[in-house]
């Protein structure tokens, strides 16, 4: 019983002392927006669509981000250009639903969709939180600089024929019986 009273009392005093000590500490808060906080590169903020090192759209409209999204806020449609390259005809994110969980980025097999350290997305009108591909697509590679999906995948697209991807042999001649 005595020890309980002693511990409780001591704890109160220690707490009071700590609070008092904080008055002399350096401030953690900053005068936002006059002072901008440092955002870590892997912060999960505003979503972008990036381009590959050759400047082409990275997104191949595989729909994996959309299916990974727990709030179903991504909708897109696959289209194909004249060279057989897949791309999204439209790509829409409803940021008023997005919870910035980053599942889409994890699901993306081409590093196209990425979350960025930008959180300043407030709008006066909710409708303005619906972003289309034009709003999402940036002119850069984002966080991942080197990856180009079509250089690895076997599908022929414009500028890369069959057998020209990484680790590929030239197309076989089916009329030949040579090994």
């Amino acid at each position: 019983m005595f020890s309980l009273i002693r511990d409780t009392f001591t704890s109160q005093l220690v707490t009071l002392w700590r609070v008092f000590k904080h008055m002399f500490d350096k401030k953690d808060t900053v005068e936002y927006p006059d002072v901008q906080p440092y955002m870590f590169p892997r912060w999960r903020g505003r979503i972008i669509l990036s381009r590959d090192p050759d400047g082409e759209e990275r997104c191949v409209a595989c729909n994996l981000c959309a299916v990974a999204c727990p709030v179903d806020c991504i909708a897109l449609q696959k289209a194909e250009d004249e060279n057989g390259r897949w791309y999204p005809e439209f790509f829409r994110i409803n940021f008023s639903r997005c919870i910035m969980c980053g599942f889409c980025e994890e699901a993306c097999p081409t590093n196209a969709i990425q979350l960025t350290p930008d959180f300043e997305m407030a709008e006066y009108v909710r409708q303005d939180m619906v972003w289309e591909k034009e709003d999402l697509l940036i002119n850069g590679t984002g966080k991942y600089h080197d990856y180009n999906f079509y250089r690895v995948a076997g599908m022929a697209v414009g500028g890369k024929d069959k057998g020209e991807a990484q680790n590929e042999a030239p197309p076989v001649d089916v009329r030949s019986l040579l090994p």
Partner: peptide, 9 residues
Amino acid sequence: SGRTAIQAA
């Protein structure tokens, strides 16, 4: 997928 985005436009 896309339940909250299909009609959002």
